[in-house]
């Protein structure tokens, strides 16, 4: 018997999830944002599922989707099990345009950190309590979220400076227990001072 047929009733009673009607070829459940973290902890740790690997976090924009009514965005988590090869589950959360907020799972899966940053960058969905919600693929001066359906593909945005990583580095140092005493400044050096470099004490 398919593992999902035994797993789903458990999830249904515990977390009140629904089957995703659009998943004809694999297994997907729709969950509420409020139970998302508990659901994912259960999926990760419980013997019956053991979804140890988070493969992807996908954002979807349903603006203008055929015959569709409901919240505009969805975030989809793709899981796979390593101890039981061949078992995969997707978890989908709908996000409405008004609140745009999903709890982060970056403390459960370290890789979710970057993947959530990507969804934020492309769709503007905020991940609550995310440690470092910055843009990842687009540059710092980018305005808007390019993968939303109402962002025209041709709207180009020039970058005038460079993107500075010093604040991120200091954050990383602090997370490792270092205390930054003296903060440096990263600047864009002009023609005359290129020999002094872009980091200034």
């Amino acid at each position: 018997m398919n593992f999902f047929e035994t797993l789903f009733p458990v999830l249904e009673t515990k977390f009140n999830v629904e089957k995703d009607a659009s998943a004809h070829w694999d297994h997907s459940v729709i969950a509420k944002a409020s139970v998302l973290r508990d659901l994912i902890i259960f999926l990760r740790d419980d013997e019956s599922s053991k979804m140890e690997m988070l493969l992807d976090v996908v954002g979807i924009d349903y603006l203008g989707f055929q015959d569709y009514e409901g919240p505009r965005f969805a975030v989809e988590y793709v899981f796979k099990s390593i101890s039981h090869p061949g078992r995969r589950v997707r978890v989908k959360v709908f996000v409405s345009e008004q609140d745009l907020e999903v709890p982060t799972i970056s403390d459960l899966y370290p890789i979710a950190n970057w993947q959530e940053r990507e969804v934020y960058d492309q769709y503007g969905i905020l991940f609550k309590d995310h440690p470092d919600l910055r843009r990842i693929l687009n540059h710092v001066e980018f305005e808007g979220h390019p993968l939303r359906k109402d962002y025209p593909a041709h709207r180009r945005q020039w970058l005038s400076t460079n993107d500075f990583l010093l604040p991120a580095l200091e954050k990383r140092l602090e997370s490792k227990g270092y205390k930054v005493v003296q903060h440096s400044k990263e600047v864009l050096p002009n023609e005359d001072e290129y020999l002094t470099g872009s980091i200034q004490e």
Partner: peptide, 14 residues
């Protein structure tokens, strides 16, 4: 890409 454009310019100037 636009993210790289300032870098390319800088390299050319160097």
């Amino acid at each position: 890409t636009y993210k790289q454009a300032p870098i390319l310019k800088r390299i050319y100037e160097q």
